[in-house]
């Protein structure tokens, strides 16, 4: 009896509110049409290539270099943001100073600025005669048309992900925790290192993952400053576009598919790390 009850348990709990069929049906239809079916297309395309074709495309050194740059640059950018982001979030949450509201709003600039505009601006800023490019050039550092330029662009777009993830968590930490550490004789540095950082670790990993995911696929803010020299400062998304312009759909698809898979793997690792950090620290991320 209980088994039949269980089997009959409806997929949806009945409700008095009308309109589920229409709204749900429309949502699924639209989601399928715009997102799911086109996305699935990339995998059916990749699958139709076959293993040997797939890997012989990816063995092209130009593609390998581009993938290395996209993933390496994204990792470095996300890492830089994971170092700088906590300081920025700390200052914004813990200190009161004139103009804090404005500084806080500025953090969202990379979200709000169209990527092409950001890319144009970065290219002008770091050009050999640019505001920052000139002094850097004097110091013998070339940014534009180098991997360093790519890293700077990927750092630029990743910052808000880390800061915005950290801020609410930092604001919610109980002040008593820090007071307890102080009464027990810990110095401020010891409190930060042994108490606050472990508490923020899962959140930091989340911020890292978000910044990384965004940076891997980034296109607009990178291409202007990168200069796109093959084997040197050419990112994988740009290579997809180049392959498409050559009507080489298989190569474009292979690059896209490997990017999706690698991003997924890296995010999976971060997720596992996060789970580990959360379990071993008792703090939710």
């Amino acid at each position: 009896m209980s088994l039949t009850e269980h089997q009959r348990r409806p997929w949806r709990t009945p409700s008095v509110l009308p309109g589920f069929g229409v709204t749900f049906g429309f949502s699924m239809f639209w989601l399928g049409l715009i997102v799911l079916i086109p996305l699935a297309g990339i995998f059916t395309w990749a699958a139709s290539l076959g293993f040997s074709d797939f890997f012989s495309i990816l063995a092209d050194p130009r593609i390998l270099e581009a993938l290395k740059l996209s993933f390496g640059g994204a990792l470095i950018g996300a890492f830089v943001n994971t170092l700088v982001g906590p300081v920025v979030a700390w200052v914004l949450v813990r200190y009161e100073f004139y103009g804090r509201g404005i500084v806080d709003a500025v953090i969202d600039l990379p979200f709000a600025l169209p990527t092409a505009v950001a890319g144009l601006a970065l290219a002008a800023l770091y050009a050999p005669n640019g505001w920052l490019g000139a002094p850097l050039a004097d110091a013998g550092i070339k940014v534009i048309f180098t991997p360093l330029g790519v890293i700077i662009a990927l750092t630029f777009i990743g910052l808000p992900f880390v800061v915005r993830t950290l801020q609410p968590v930092l604001a919610d930490l109980e002040p008593e925790i820090e007071e307890a550490a102080a009464t027990l004789g810990a110095t401020r540095w010891q409190t930060i290192r042994k108490i606050l950082l472990p508490a923020l670790l899962p959140t930091l990993l989340t911020g890292f993952a978000l910044a990384f995911a965004r940076a891997v696929g980034e296109y607009g803010s990178v291409i202007f400053i990168a200069g796109n020299l093959p084997y040197k400062s050419e990112i994988a998304p740009l290579l997809i576009i180049i392959k498409l312009e050559e009507f080489n759909y298989p190569a474009a698809t292979a690059i896209a598919a490997i990017m999706l898979v690698m991003s997924f793997l890296i995010l999976l690792i971060v997720n596992l790390l996060q789970g580990w950090a959360r379990r071993s620290t008792g703090y939710a991320g």
Binding site: I42, L244, F247, A252
Partner: peptide, 19 residues
């Protein structure tokens, strides 16, 4: 979480000349 470039690509694969 999809790269904009990949987002463009999926429509080319769907509706492009060889799509």
């Amino acid at each position: 979480s999809v790269s904009p470039v990949v987002a463009g690509l999926i429509y080319v694969l769907m509706f492009g000349a060889q799509g």
